[in-house]
Design a binder for these strands. Structure first.
Lengths: 260, 260
DNA sequence: GAAGCATATTGGTACGTACCAGATATGTCA
DNA sequence: TGACATATCTGGTACGTACCAATATGCTTC
């Protein structure tokens, strides 16, 4: 039996349905398992103790253990097979996980220093195209933010985003600089939180403006990523057009989702 | 209260834990809800009956209802809010769901006719790069399949894939033609099923060979998508390099996954 | 009319039990 | 020694109960 069950298992148990310690029990367990896995104390494809054993050890329900395992499975850290057990996913799988991170978070994960140059922040009436994707009335006011993103000082991408803010809400380039992150600014100031995004990727040749801003030749291949970000209520809150230089890699994990 | 609860609710109930009708109960319910949503009988952001009401109506446990709702939430069809209820996601969200489809399935969903021209099928020893990403010994035999993919007859992409087959296994171009789909061939003949994939996207300029095969100019921007496909045991089973013309759009849905 | 508060409703978490289904090890018998 | 049945692991599904937490609603109060 594995190390996991030799430990004390003090999860700061908070009693049935009483999550005094902040996070729900199953998330606490998931965090503990995640830490163990990421610390490297568990090798690739290593067999975990059974759900029943973990439950007994931590004095919790098997259902709670299953929730934790589910969570880590969705994140690509574990995988289960009926009749065999639950295993640690190979590190190559774990390393490439992608979420709806902001550019900053995404870059930090890769070990780079993210920076940005704000080109413009303006309010303007939406044209037909923008209104269409954002599901709003044409000529309704939207906020446009155009930035050049840098990694370790070198320009790697152009972000051009159109935001739907609450009526009358607005901010300036100074606000954005002070906040540091656009997503943080939206969350703290307007209560706007991104729930999920729809992305479309293709390639495009750099035009004259792109070329000068990114320091590449006109006609150079760029990765074009368009995103519609949805709020928690599934209302489009942002349309973003991102162009990246050829060296920038965008990684994603696609799950097989079988109807069985 | 919505239509859902006015129906008879004959889900071919199979009794507790007795899934005689084939699929598990929660999947049957999910399929029913999905059908209702996709038929358009439920509008965007429409409120569903509460989990408890659905459970009573279908004479099943609330837990089973929750599993069905979870499934549809993961697929972007529903979203829930504590204290408010569960709602139908806007159609724009539903339309853009992406899974680990084969190129054929993906194209059919978009209403096109997928075709392919097989350029070569060969067995060869893996070089260092291929062996590295596939986590095998250098010079171990891999199978290479290179194809030109077409939509409605026009070439849109080049697929160049390296496969790790069971010892001694092999197939020819004729086998592939007869099967129609590479994934189907791998599943039926070698029992290889894809569980998930790791993709990396960037842009690249077309070289002379690309240009002639895709009918574009040399230097034209292409979408470069590299994928490592993992088997159910999370062993790399395929490395695939795909280059697409600029008009091809690759869509994906990114979920916010908060640590909370 | 506006503000404050109690209450009912909703999803979220956690407990428990039971049985099914796939995989593996164990044994027995030919 | 080999083939086949069996016991027993594993995760998967389904049932039930209870309570917490966030939201919405109605009522009271000012």
């Amino acid at each position: 039996m594995a190390d996991l069950l030799d430990e004390t298992g003090d999860l700061e148990l908070a009693g049935p349905a009483a999550t005094q310690s902040g996070a729900p029990l199953y998330r606490q367990l998931a965090a503990k398992l995640r830490a163990e896995i990421e610390s490297g104390s568990r090798g690739s494809n290593e067999l975990l103790p059974s759900e029943r054993d973990i439950a007994v050890h931590y004095a919790m329900s098997r259902d709670t253990v299953r929730k934790a395992v589910r969570l880590l499975e969705e994140q690509g850290l574990l995988y289960s097979e009926q009749g065999r057990g639950t295993f640690v996913a190979p590190s190559s799988v774990r390393e490439m996980s992608r979420f709806l991170d902001s550019f900053s978070q995404d870059t930090e994960k890769r070990g780079g220093v993210a920076g940005q140059t704000i080109v413009l922040v303006e309010q303007l009436p939406a044209n037909l195209a923008i209104a269409g994707v954002l599901k709003i009335e044409p000529r309704q006011t939207v906020t446009r933010v155009k930035r050049i993103r840098t990694i370790d000082g070198a320009p790697v991408g152009i972000h051009d985003t159109y935001l739907v803010l609450p009526l009358g809400a607005a901010f300036t380039a100074e606000d954005l600089v002070r906040s540091g992150s656009l997503y943080r600014l939206l969350a703290t100031r307007f209560g706007l939180n991104a729930a999920e995004g729809l992305e479309s990727l293709s390639s495009v040749a750099a035009n004259a403006e792109d070329a000068s801003q990114l320091g590449v030749a006109i006609g150079a291949p760029l990765l074009l990523c368009e995103r519609i970000t949805l709020s928690e209520r599934r209302q489009p809150m942002e349309y973003c057009e991102m162009k990246y230089v050829s060296s920038y890699r965008y990684t994603t994990r696609v799950n097989k989702f079988s109807q069985k």
